[in-house]
Design a protein around this nucleic acid. Structure first.
Lengths: 346, 346
DNA sequence: GTGAAAGCGCTAACAT
DNA sequence: ATGTTAGCGCTTTCAC
């Protein structure tokens, strides 16, 4: 690369000061009373020499990088991939780039990533956290680092966050199942349980069952570590099947669990929904094509991202966030397909 | 944030020079003959003051940011989401962060993104390009910007790239169909056609057909713009169906086309594979659960990323890349499931 | 209306 | 074996 043209080159070739050029670049010329004529002259020269300010130098000087960090548990999970895409789009429109980090549900890795991103001076952070406590975020608050939590959050949370109505969604799922006369359910979730989405979904489902006088036996409350999902689900289903005691329905707490559950149900040729019904939290377009098609609670991904980025942007631009906007809970929908509808008994 | 401790603070409090501290930080102390004792002293002070070098300043000074850019057409497409995840992992192990950009199949947007990333001084680029010519990349070559193309590439390509055997994979699909006695096929692809994966898959499929003496009528060579996929596929299928002239099989050129095709086939209650068979390029775990399960050509995503990152890393660290390693073509597999196997005629 | 000059925190060529 | 010094390219305070 031949030496790039710098701001100084522009100034020199025009016989003006670097200040002047800088002001023009940052659209502060007018407010500083620089004549329109001079501004034009500078702008033309910039075009002519195809000058692009060195963002690194700017960033170094101002401490701002026009970059935001996005931390999720796994960017290859469709749910988070879609989140990433939406956030990227909103960011792009405002001139921000996004750095992605997959935490693998590992609180320590997540902390490392936060540190790394801050050290790289990202201007803000959007996080779907795998932590078990709010410490990191309280610290971000204290140090005034713009950030917003999405998807998962903490009860004692001061940080702006946008989540969905996990509790309500799970209740909808339960009511849907109960309304068909089912009484025996198994829940498939991931551990650790401190993840708010998981515990809220668990809580919502259980609360509806309680109202209906149903209880889930401990052995049907299946929890699998993130990375052992396949084997745990497989073995649990086999065990149930062999004992001959099967629930009437499975409630799976995220899209991965749902498809994995279907996979092993099919493997054993267990008929869904005839023998067991299935409904999951988190919808995927593929659930429409599976055999049977899968019922699910659908989250408004685009809205989550829209609100989250808006919240972040307000912080980045030092706008006041009204306190009632700091905590956003979006409604979810239930999509009823084949997997959760028991065939009518004759 | 209270003023962060800087390298100068360390130097000052220890009564040594900034150079010394800098050398220690960058592990160049020993090769410069700094005594172990002094090094230890410095390291302890760094720990004590919890000093973290300002990456922005370092980057500004060295022109390196320990960041790479990843440009794909759409990060929410599962294929690219998985690519992103794999790249991110390899990058993380080497201390690199990754900035993601979705180009929306738009050559201009992609160019803008390349410029933006370079301006942000990413150290390297991994790109699945939507361009119709290699200009941008020739330029990257001339200016010695570390980069590698993946997935899609150009015929007159000097840049290191890793692709899969799209031609061969499509031939496998064709042969599989032909071997069952089918003769009439429709291809569903996306425009623009200059995308190498698309044209190679098209070419491979056609070449096998030609050998078998089959031709695809123009009207069965369906091309849809990226953003009109749904409607084009829907209407094409309806049109075929109404005319009463249906192909014996569809070959869809990527995972989105495949699932969209299945969607509209099902909508019309057209039986797959009985009435039409279906096989697609690019496998998805969900294809195992669809009704019917979908046959597909599977790409070795992890290997693509492994090789791509390796190629990039060699450039980043100024290692020589043997010329035979600059062009990597990975083999693909065919996964035969229900959708492409015609029921035996009695 | 415009410019001079200091300095952000770090690295590296050059001294000693 | 360690230190001095000159910037990297930009923003910003203050001065004219």
């Amino acid at each position: 690369m031949t030496k790039k043209t710098s701001l100084a080159d522009i100034a020199l070739s025009l016989g003006v000061s670097k200040t002047l050029v800088s002001l023009v670049i940052n659209n502060k010329a007018t407010e500083h009373g620089i004549s329109a004529e001079t501004q034009l002259k500078v702008k033309e020269k910039i075009k002519e020499l195809n000058f692009q300010p060195n963002v690194l130098a700017q960033g170094f000087r101002t401490g701002k990088t026009k970059t935001i960090g996005l931390i999720v548990s796994d960017i290859s999970n469709i749910f988070y991939a879609r989140i990433a895409r939406n956030i990227e789009d909103y960011a792009w429109h405002k001139g921000y780039s996004v750095v992605i980090c997959s935490s693998d549900e590992d609180p320590n890795k997540e902390e490392e990533q936060i540190k790394l991103l801050l050290n790289r001076k990202v201007d803000g952070l959007i996080i779907s956290s795998s932590q078990d406590k709010a410490d990191s975020f309280n610290q971000l608050n204290e140090t005034d680092v713009p950030h917003v939590l999405i998807d998962r959050c903490f009860s004692d949370m001061k940080s702006p966050h946008v989540t969905v109505d996990n509790y309500g969604g799970a209740r909808m799922a339960a009511r849907h199942l109960l309304s068909q006369g089912m009484k025996n359910f198994a829940i498939i979730s991931i551990s650790p349980e401190h993840i708010s989405t998981i515990s809220d979904r668990l809580g919502g489902f259980q609360s509806a069952l309680k109202e209906a006088g149903c209880v889930i036996p401990e052995s049907w409350n299946i929890k699998s570590p993130f990375d052992k999902m396949e084997s745990v689900i497989n073995e649990s289903i086999i065990k149930m099947y062999q004992t001959g005691k099967m629930p009437e329905a499975f409630f799976t707490l995220n899209n991965n669990l749902t498809s994995t559950c279907l996979k092993y149900l099919r493997k054993l040729s267990i008929k869904v929904p005839d023998e067991v019904a299935l409904i999951g939290f988190d919808d995927l377009k593929y659930f429409e094509y599976t055999q049977p098609s899968i019922s699910a609670i659908e989250q408004p991904i685009d809205r989550i991202c829209e609100r989250a980025f808006d919240l972040l942007y307000k912080q980045l631009t030092k706008q006041e966030i009204p306190s009632e906007e700091r905590t956003i809970v979006l409604p979810v929908d239930i999509i009823i397909r084949e997997s959760s509808v028991k065939p009518k008994k004759v």
